[in-house]
Design a protein around this nucleic acid. Structure first.
Length: 481
RNA sequence: GGGCCGUUAGCUCAGUUGGCUAGAGCACUUGACUUUUAAUCAAGGGGUCCCGGGUUCGACCCCCGGACGGCCUACCA
């Protein structure tokens, strides 16, 4: 798609207009331009006969012969300008007619209200700021082609104001999260994205090569093991809000690079994390979206606290019957199959149970739910429940069927941690992060920790159906010739 | 990775049981118009019907292969 190179009538016409404007003394790519404010600010502070200047993209033109109405559009609003031949002179008027939709222009003039009640700038002088050589997308329907919307997101943003609004909200959400955590004494840190061991989760990493060291390095799949090192170092409230990379499939809820917030608090535990995340999500819902309810009808979401809390076992029993955990493997498998699942013959009871959870229970948890006390085998970096060593002291916050935030009372026993790593790595000591275990051996305080998928949180709060709708430039395949 | 669906003008979309010059709206060009706002009116130009191959007297349409996208599915702490 090299349409910039395509010779089409639009481009040629616009280049001809550019040349003509240049000839008339309008350099096509102007310099800084002093504006009274954004178009939204002009509208808010409207006052008749006030002299103002504005700069924005030309979005529609209504040519009446000796006068022209045109709309300017910027990231904030639309505003009408009125250009009169008599007012700006014959040459400037003639030149204005050489403008094309999409051109960036600056105008100076006086505010007034038209006969039909439209706030308008009566232009006394105009400046060309940037000539658009390619035409904008269709003005009424906007840009629909999803592929172009993602590949040329700038066109999506120009043509579809609701998209721009969504990304404004994403920015506000991130700002409010940082604000919320800073207010509670957390400091933001930056830990390596290039790691020699990709730890902290169990996903396939991207591998790249570091030439100067002559060795392969991995893009991080999680910052967890570095943040915990900082707990050892005495930072007692830390968070990192940045990208993780996972070399896995691409679908409606997965992008290979995604934004993760990880939070660790020394001397706290999973209960502290529960208070923190509930308060944080309510805070951003209120400040950014102005409401604790999202959507309507069957899928309406209500974030009013307190949120439901249920143990993993309770949810399983609720769905599969009180006797589920007394069943033999065969009986469990049969019952799972009766629920429409297809358990792998090699699986044990734990795996069959987890399949039931992931396929039938989690997706059905519409309202915010803290799922607690998960089987220890599923979570190697969490501490066991004091009353039951087969369970870990964790929660997974599920909203709208999606896992938004897993939180743990963190494992800080170096001996137990090494044992679990070895188990996970199939006893291959080269695959475990020895430096991390060494850090634990120096003594990590008891702590609560949590990861929050920011893209998914954004999807939930905005009602977006696909992760690529909340990521400015989602991963797409490269076009090959 | 597998299945289904889609790709027609710059954009948004019609359409053809396989037929002769492939349509509309916006956009563009020319003309008219000093309060319009998806301005209006008149005239006009614009197409590799995603790409490659096949069948056919004839393919945008049917068949095979491919690219890209969407949905579902699989994988994914």
């Amino acid at each position: 798609m090299s349409e910039a190179e395509t010779n089409n009538e639009y481009r040629e016409q616009r280049l001809a207009n550019l040349a003509a404007l240049e000839e008339m003394g309008y350099p096509p790519y102007g310099a800084a331009f002093e504006r009274t404010g954004s178009l939204a600010e002009l509208r808010e502070s409207f006052e008749e006969e006030r002299p103002v200047s504005a700069a924005a993209r030309l979005s529609t033109v209504r040519d009446m012969g000796k006068s022209i109405f045109a709309d300017l559009r910027d990231g904030s609003d639309r505003f009408q300008v009125y250009v009169q031949k008599k007012a700006i002179g014959e040459d400037a008027f003639k030149a204005f007619k050489l403008l094309d939709l999409g051109d960036q222009v600056g105008v100076e003039g006086e505010l007034f209200v038209t006969r039909t009640g439209e706030p308008t700038i009566k232009v006394s002088k105009w400046t060309l700021l940037s000539k658009a050589i390619l035409p904008p997308p269709e003005k009424f329907h906007g840009l629909k082609d999803v592929e172009m919307r993602y590949r040329q997101r700038y066109l999506d943003l120009v043509g579809n104001p609701e998209v721009r609004e969504l990304f404004n909200k994403r920015s506000a959400l991130i700002r409010e999260i940082r604000h919320y955590l800073a207010e509670r004494g957390f400091i933001e840190v930056e830990t390596p994205m290039l790691q020699s061991q990709a730890g902290g989760a169990a996903a396939k990493p991207f591998v790249t090569h570091y030439g100067a060291l002559g060795s392969d390095v991995y893009m991080r799949i999680a910052p967890e093991l570095y943040l915990k090192r900082l707990l050892v170092g005495g930072f007692d409230k830390v968070f990192e809000l940045n990208r993780n990379f996972r070399n896995e499939g691409l679908d409606r809820t997965h992008n290979p690079e995604f934004t993760m917030l990880e939070i660790y608090e020394a001397f706290s535990d999973v209960n502290g994390m529960r208070e923190l995340i509930q308060g944080m999500i309510i805070h951003v819902a209120e400040t950014v979206f102005g409401t604790l309810s999202v959507g309507e009808g069957d899928t309406a979401l209500d974030l009013t606290p307190p949120w439901r809390e249920a143990t993993y076992h309770e949810l399983i029993r609720e769905k599969m019957g009180d006797d589920w955990f007394d069943l033999s493997l065969e009986e469990a498998r049969t019952k799972a199959e009766a629920s429409g699942l297809d358990p792998d013959p090699a699986w044990d009871t734990l795996m069959v149970t987890h399949e039931v959870y992931e396929k039938t229970i989690e997706p059905a948890l519409q309202q915010p739910t803290f799922v607690t006390r998960l089987p220890a085998q599923l979570v190697p970096l969490a501490k066991a429940c004091p009353d039951d060593p087969s369970l870990v002291d964790v929660f997974e916050l599920v909203i709208r069927g999606q896992e938004v935030a897993p939180a743990y009372t963190e494992m800080n026993d170096p001996i137990e941690q090494r044992r679990r790593f070895m188990e996970q790595a199939g006893d291959d000591a080269t695959k475990i992060d020895q430096d991390f275990v060494t850090a634990l051996e120096h003594g990590m305080p008891p702590a609560g920790g949590m990861g929050v998928g920011i893209d998914r949180l954004m999807m939930i709060l905005s009602g977006a159906e696909a992760i690529r709708d909340v990521i400015l430039f989602p991963q797409l395949k490269q076009k090959s010739e």
